Amino acid sequence: LVRYRTISKIPQITLNFVDLKGDPFLASPTSDREIIAPKIKERTHNVTEKVTQVLSLGADVLPEYKLQAPRIHRWTILHYSPFKAVWDWLILLLVIYTAVFTPYSAAFLLKETEEGPPATECGYACQPLAVVDLIVDIMFIVDILINFRTTYVNANEEVVSHPGRIAVHYFKGWFLIDMVAAIPFDLLIFGSGSEELIGLLKTARLLRLVRVARKLDRYSEYGAAVLFLLMCTFALIAHWLACIWYAIGNMEQPHMDSRIGWLHNLGDQIGKPYNSSGLGGPSIKDKYVTALYFTFSSLTSVGFGNVSPNTNSEKIFSICVMLIGSLMYASIFGNVSAIIQRLYSGTARYHTQMLRVREFIRFHQIPNPLRQRLEEYFQHAWSYTNGIDMNAVLKGFPECLQADICLHLNRSLLQHCKPFRGATKGCLRALAMKFKTTHAPPGDTLVHAGDLLTALYFISRGSIEILRGDVVVAILGKNDIFGEPLNLYARPGKSNGDVRALTYCDLHKIHR
């Protein structure tokens, strides 16, 4: 019993810090008490220290592992850092350059016999395009090294910054494609005289377009951006097909006994025919423009016929181009109408809503002055909100995010209106959640004399007048207030005048 009563005193000691020596009952000389009392004092002292730490809000209350900052290894790049964003855009520009100039170089340097010394005699450094290609190869190699040090988000939505895990993730992902696209074939085969082989191998750079397509997928929600990307894709495919079309004609031209190829026909049409040795002929500019003209006309199913396939190889390629053109029509131009419709969806919704308003007016036989006010209010409210119901949009977000959005939407009023000066951010967040926005066209009466005042109004834009009878008592403008002081009276009061809008007004109100 003594032991039980001794232990039962522990909660009292913990909360009230009572010393055991003052209790005459606990001072009985028993061996059990002498053993338990020192333990009680020690526990009391420890609990006292913990309570003191909690009340003082000291940093040592938290466990040590929670006080440590997340460790980022040296030379690790955050995937959302500004440097990584700028670097990704730079790589994107280099990939676009590669997609345009690599097929052009591979096709127009394929057994090209233009006048001038061969590239091997001039030297590697004197070729501007080769120098640019070398810079692109170096940048792609540097990009691989950067990807080995860039964080990523795993399946659990955690940012991984450990170098080993980053390397394994990159090896399992895009490393092989990036490595093949970054191989400097110019340096590996330079001086061997195989410019045709170098041009063909350099087309491996186009593998990076797969990554670019995935990154550009984030802009699919913007109709104008999608339309622009589709047109660029169409032009890029036409450019690639033009390079292939020229390569076919250029390879067949020296081996044909009869002059029936499209390059021969082009030379005869523009007065620059090929001679018996295969030299001469149109310039590279004429060849490229004509090839691009043929691919565009074939892809769009126009086909004027002034550039036509004559050999079997050219006919087979033309059939493939027609098939590609039909697929592009289905996948690209078939979506253009939907994209344009999405661009004008706001206008369509406006006309639909206006039609419903006019049908309501016609069905209920609203008189002319009231009908005009109804239409003007709808037009003004639509121009202010673009038909978007803010309350319906915010309803799907958590309250903390709703408060931040409301604070942002009402920031101008909260910053410049005098009653809100000096208020804490928590108070402003709470008030912003209570605001209701209303609009009024010129001549609209917001409050009639004798109406119950259940709200306090803040003028965000425009001006109003307060009338008693036919006498203008006051004219209020931006950041002015009218209405009933909230919670100042037990019952809502009545208006002693009319409140009429002089201009288009936007008002925020808080109800009782």
Rank of each mutant, 00 (worst) to 15 (best):
F171C: 14
K434T: 03
R342T: 09
I96C: 07
F363I: 13
G334V: 04
G422M: 11
G281E: 01
L343T: 12
T347Y: 07
Q372A: 04
K172M: 06
G346Q: 11
P103V: 01
H364D: 03
L134Q: 03
C400H: 08
Y124R: 03
R349W: 09
N250C: 14
A430P: 01
I177K: 01
S276N: 04
A69N: 13
E158H: 10
S297H: 01
Y65D: 07
D178K: 01
F333K: 03
L90Y: 03
L92T: 01
L134H: 05
G346T: 13
K84L: 03
G396L: 03
I166T: 04
A330S: 01
I135P: 01
I248C: 01
C126F: 01
D444N: 10
M256L: 15
S345Y: 14
V132L: 09
D137R: 10
M251E: 03
A330H: 15
L94G: 10
H351F: 05
S297P: 01
L323E: 01
L292I: 05
K66Y: 15
S194M: 13
D178Q: 01
T311I: 01
P369M: 03
L323D: 01
K172E: 04
A107V: 04
Q379L: 06
L229V: 05
V393P: 03
I237Q: 01
Y377S: 13
V180F: 08
L93S: 05
A213W: 03
Y219N: 04
Y329N: 15
A430T: 12
D143V: 01
R208G: 04
L229S: 04
S105H: 15
A440C: 13
G281Q: 01
K287V: 04
L236A: 01
V357Y: 04
K287C: 05
S194T: 14
G271W: 01
M433C: 10
K84V: 03
M256H: 12
T300E: 01
P184D: 01
P273Y: 01
Y97M: 01
Y377K: 01
L374P: 03
M322C: 06
P367Q: 09
F435E: 02
V142K: 02
K66D: 04
K172A: 04
D404L: 02
A403C: 03
A247D: 01
H239K: 01
V95D: 01
A423D: 01
T445Y: 12
L279Y: 14
S301L: 10
K418D: 15
F296T: 05
N310G: 01
N265I: 15
W75L: 08
L327Q: 02
L187T: 10
M179Q: 01
L67R: 05
L209E: 01
F228T: 12
H169W: 04
T113P: 06
T233V: 12
L374D: 01
I96H: 01
L394H: 03
R218L: 08
L229I: 11
A338N: 03
A348T: 10
E112L: 06
K425T: 15
S258D: 06
F171G: 08
G164W: 14
L327N: 01
R259D: 15
T295W: 01
A235N: 01
A440N: 09
V131Y: 04
Y293W: 05
P419C: 12
I332W: 04
M322K: 02
W245V: 01
F420M: 05
Q372F: 11
N368R: 09
I198K: 06
R421T: 13
V136R: 11
L207G: 15
F108Y: 01
G422H: 11
L428K: 15
G305A: 14
V86C: 12
E221P: 04
L266F: 01
R371C: 12
Y274W: 04
L428W: 05
F294I: 01
L327A: 03
D286P: 01
T150D: 14
S192P: 12
L292A: 01
T445S: 06
G164P: 09
F140H: 01
E359Y: 03
K285T: 14
E121W: 07
L241N: 01
S345H: 12
R205S: 01
F296W: 07
I183S: 04
Y274D: 03
S301Y: 01
P103S: 01
V302H: 08
S383P: 08
V132T: 03
L78C: 04
I144P: 01
W245G: 01
A182T: 05
I183P: 01
F304T: 04
T120R: 15
R349N: 07
S298R: 03
T352N: 09
A155Y: 11
A181W: 01
D404K: 01
A69S: 07
I177Q: 01
S194C: 14
P419L: 06
H448W: 03
D217N: 09
G123K: 07
D444V: 07
R205P: 03
L197R: 04
S194Y: 13
Y65H: 07
H380P: 01
D88F: 01
I340A: 12
T290W: 01
N265K: 14
M251R: 04
Y219L: 13
L279M: 08
T102R: 01
W89R: 01
V168M: 11
G280T: 03
H448S: 07
I91R: 01
L188I: 09
I260T: 04
S308C: 04
T352I: 07
E114N: 06
L93W: 01
A125F: 15
L431K: 03
I244G: 04
S276H: 09
W245S: 01
E359G: 03
E195Q: 15
F228H: 01
G191S: 09
G303N: 01
L129Q: 08
L227R: 01
S277N: 15
L93Y: 01
E221L: 01
A181N: 01
R421W: 03
V159Q: 03
R259M: 03
T352Y: 13
D286M: 01
S298F: 03
I91T: 06
S105N: 15
Q402V: 04
A213N: 04
A291D: 01
S337A: 10
A242C: 01
I324A: 01
K111M: 11
A430M: 12
M251H: 04
H169V: 04
T102H: 14
D286E: 06
P442Q: 14
Q269V: 01
D404G: 02
M322R: 03
T150C: 04
V159Y: 03
A440R: 07
V142H: 01
M322V: 04
I177S: 04
F234R: 01
P282Y: 01
Y377V: 04
K272L: 01
W89Y: 03
K272H: 01
F333T: 03
E314T: 01
E115V: 14
R214Q: 05
K172Y: 06
A381R: 15
A247P: 01
L93V: 12
N306E: 01
R211E: 06
H73S: 07
R362S: 03
V336W: 03
A440M: 15
A99N: 01
E121I: 11
L216W: 04
T203Y: 01
A130Q: 05
I146W: 01
Y246D: 01
Q68S: 07
P282A: 01
H364E: 01
C232A: 11
Q372H: 09
L134Y: 06
K434M: 04
L236E: 01
K425F: 04
T203L: 10
D217G: 05
T437Q: 09
T385P: 04
L413K: 01
P282H: 05
L299H: 01
K436C: 06
N410Q: 12
N386K: 04
L446T: 01
L299G: 01
H408A: 01
S313E: 11
T295R: 01
K172H: 05
R71Q: 12
A106D: 01
V226C: 12
D88I: 01
A430I: 07
F140T: 01
I144L: 06
I72Y: 14
T347Q: 07
Q341W: 06
F175W: 04
T113L: 03
T295L: 05
V289T: 01
G281V: 01
N265M: 14
P367C: 05
K436N: 10
